[in-house]
Design a protein around this nucleic acid. Structure first.
Length: 647
RNA sequence: GUCAGGGUAGCUCAGCUGGUUAGAGCACUGGUCUCAUAAGCCGGGGGUCGGGGGUUCGAGUCCCCCCUCUGACACCA
């Protein structure tokens, strides 16, 4: 059986963090286990390197874009190599073969009639140089900013007929209930599609760092939209559009993604594949995010978990175990040293590591390290049967991406071992001269450890190799067959003494994340709105008089109330010392309650053209700073006279 | 606001189509063995199953209302 497993290709606008490591660990686990059971396995990961953001980031550092991409991409690859990730290919969207494949796909879509050239058509206000959606327009189709009449304006773009695939997608979700995991995510996707799919603009003319549309179109100012480019990597990696040698691996068995990019993988991607007449992947698994000590990780808080650092202090495989055991797939998880240490001590040291040590100790004392399984079934059929009952169910959990359940169940095998030792107390039997029984128990536990190690191999490849070595066997496909499928026992073997696998950890080994927030220049990551034109910015510098075109004033909030039917808006009446109050509608309800604002001073952009929000006129804007942790208003340090000019 | 999914022991969660004293792991605690990494094993405490009402012989499990959390979408000059 062929088994193709993918991670997303990671965007090279920042270095790898623990979330990237998590996805990659999961994929690696699936890949390793798949190889172990004898599947022909292909594991793909890589980097996504195109797009305006990369172009701009490189420019800022005054580096050639390609060089910038090379550097960041290398940090990912190096990390995976350090972590011994068993990928079969590391693809980069700047690989010429990938780009060729994407162009081939584009041509096929054109031939299929799924791509057409058209225009963005929108209500455009010439003086504001902005498109406005219908819903924002004032009465009579006037601009919500300046109140002038808008005109319908067109801008050239190629579009993918996503709308055509609305029904086929719904049918597919219906027919394949396991296509999207976990199920809760599936509902979200379905409700999104139900809301109606618009054709997707798949080319840009505003930047050049991307895959050009095929030469056959003779339209070289168009560059492909990053998502079309990026998603195609899953098939171009197998040779789509150039050398199709590995296309036999398609469709993928498991495509892992973060919950933030599920929509692209569960809607756009299947639609693209349908257009290309390719089968759809068997399942898309969307995992959650990681927090740290209950708080969202962010650069500004300085509490981002560096996987390299954790691995350095605690070990990569312990981290892998922790991440996969701690949190149900799909849910958000919390990383804390406490939780990691608890898992290590209680699961790894106490249950597993100590069990191996018990076997080593007993075999040393009672039989000079030699183990013979001849009498195991004579005394321990119950334990062996119970263990196989558990081992037999494990693959189901793996198939459902229920890693935490998988490990939880697997651990019961160790409990069987620990209980058997207690119950049969080999040390008592030895004293009574019942050596055959005592040695049978030791052999039983050694076999349980062997079998469990085989099933744990995907999660902890190195550790299980060490256990296997201590037990005198190797973790191979053949042994998987023998020990798990055929339920055989290892026969005669010799124990090798190894130091404790998991020394207990008493104190945190890493410096704790800073608790207090450190004020730092808050970054406001702008989300890329796919169908909007990007605001053209020149060199980014303005003259002082340009700044003073903005009238900033101190105002006092006199009244504040929540806007019904909105979760973000507050309607404020602000006194700017003008005799009349200004009505300002601000999107800060999630961060400030209405009553907490009344009587406080704020900074107001006073000469903003009025806008209409949820049907209400807003005559100004509050200054606020927002980063990934929240939003705070900008206020005068000390109260000033209402209407005071800022600047 | 619309839609979806939650609220069960200190913590993280199981509890399928309603049925005897509501479960697991961790944490806490009492006991005990000694092969072992002060690990293991046995036992214990602790929950009015978010609140209220209803259906039923019987509800954590079904229905209604409310509170609250999460997510998607809308919205965020």
């Amino acid at each position: 059986m062929k088994n193709y497993i993918t991670t997303p290709i990671y965007y090279v606008n920042g270095e790898a963090h623990i979330g990237h490591a998590y996805t990659t660990f999961i994929a690696d686990t699936l890949a390793r286990h798949s190889r172990l059971v004898g599947n022909e396995t292909y594991f793909l990961t890589g980097t996504d390197e195109h797009g305006q953001k990369i172009e701009e980031a490189a420019k800022k550092l005054e580096k050639p874009t390609q060089q910038f991409a090379d550097e960041i991409s290398a940090t990912f690859k190096n990390l995976w190599d350090e972590f011994d990730i068993s990928y079969d290919q590391f693809i980069r969207t700047t690989d010429p073969k990938h780009m060729q494949g994407v162009q081939a796909a584009f041509e096929k879509m054109v031939a299929k009639g799924d791509i057409y050239k058209d225009f963005y058509e929108g209500n455009y206000c010439v003086s504001c140089e902005t498109f406005f959606p219908e819903s924002q327009l004032m009465d009579g189709g006037c601009c919500p900013d300046c109140g002038r009449a808008t005109t319908i304006v067109k801008e050239e773009s190629y579009f993918f007929r996503l709308s055509k695939y609305e029904q086929p997608l719904m049918d597919y979700y219906e027919a394949h209930s396991d296509f999207i995991l976990p199920k809760s995510r599936k509902n979200e996707v379905i409700s999104f599609v139900k809301g109606g799919l618009h054709d997707l603009s798949v080319t840009r003319t505003s930047f050049t760092w991307g895959v050009p549309v095929p030469a056959s179109l003779n339209d070289n100012k168009h560059v492909m939209y990053v998502w079309l480019d990026a998603l195609m990597n899953y098939v171009t990696a197998l040779g789509y559009g150039h050398d199709e040698a590995k296309m036999g691996f398609w469709p993928a068995n498991t495509q892992l993604v973060g919950k933030d990019i599920l929509r692209f993988h569960a809607i756009y991607w299947p639609a693209f594949l349908m257009s290309l007449d390719l089968p759809l992947p068997k399942r898309i698994g969307a995992h959650g995010w990681w927090t740290r000590d209950g708080e969202k990780m962010s650069k500004s808080k300085g509490n981002v978990v560096d996987p390299r650092e954790v691995a350095h202090h605690y070990g990569v495989e312990n981290l892998r175990y922790f991440m996969m055991r701690e949190v149900p797939f799909g849910q958000d998880g919390d990383f804390s040293q406490r939780a990691l240490i608890d898992r290590m001590n209680s699961d790894l040291s106490n249950d597993l590591g100590n069990l191996l040590n018990r076997v080593i100790g007993m075999s040393e004392k009672y039989s000079d390290f030699s183990i013979d399984s001849v009498n195991v079934l004579k005394y321990h059929t119950k334990e062996i049967e119970d263990a196989h009952a558990i081992l037999g169910t494990l693959e189901t959990y793996l198939n459902d991406l229920q890693f935490h359940r998988y490990l939880e169940e697997l651990w019961k095998v160790f409990t069987i071992g620990n209980k058997a030792i207690e119950e049969h107390a080999p040390w008592v039997k030895i004293k009574e001269g019942r050596n055959e029984e005592a040695l049978a128990t030791v052999a039983l536990v050694a076999n349980l450890l062997a079998k469990a190690s085989v099933m744990l191999h995907g999660v902890m490849p190195k550790t299980t190799a060490t256990i296997a070595d201590a037990l005198g066997f190797e973790i191979t496909t053949q042994n998987y067959q023998e020990l798990i499928i055929n339920k055989k026992l290892l026969q005669l073997f010799t124990i090798k003494k190894v130091p404790p696998l998991f020394p207990r950890v008493d104190e945190p080994l890493m410096q704790e994340a800073p608790k207090a927030m450190i004020e730092e220049a808050p970054k406001a990551p702008k989300e890329e709105k796919s169908l909007k034109t990007e605001a053209p910015s020149a060199d980014g510098l303005i003259a002082i008089d340009q700044f003073f075109q903005t009238s900033l004033k101190i105002g006092m909030v006199v009244e504040a109330e929540e806007v019904p039917k909105s979760s973000k808006l507050l309607k404020l009446q602000v006194d700017l010392g003008e005799g009349t109050l200004r009505q300002i509608v601000a999107g800060i309800r999630e961060h400030y309650s209405a009553e907490s604002l009344i009587g406080t001073q704020v900074c107001v952009v006073a000469n903003l053209k009025p806008a209409k929000l949820m049907g209400m006129v807003s005559e100004g804007m509050l200054l606020a700073a927002k980063d990934s942790d929240g939003l705070s208003l900008i206020r005068p340090e000390k109260p000033r006279v209402i209407g005071s000019v800022i600047g």
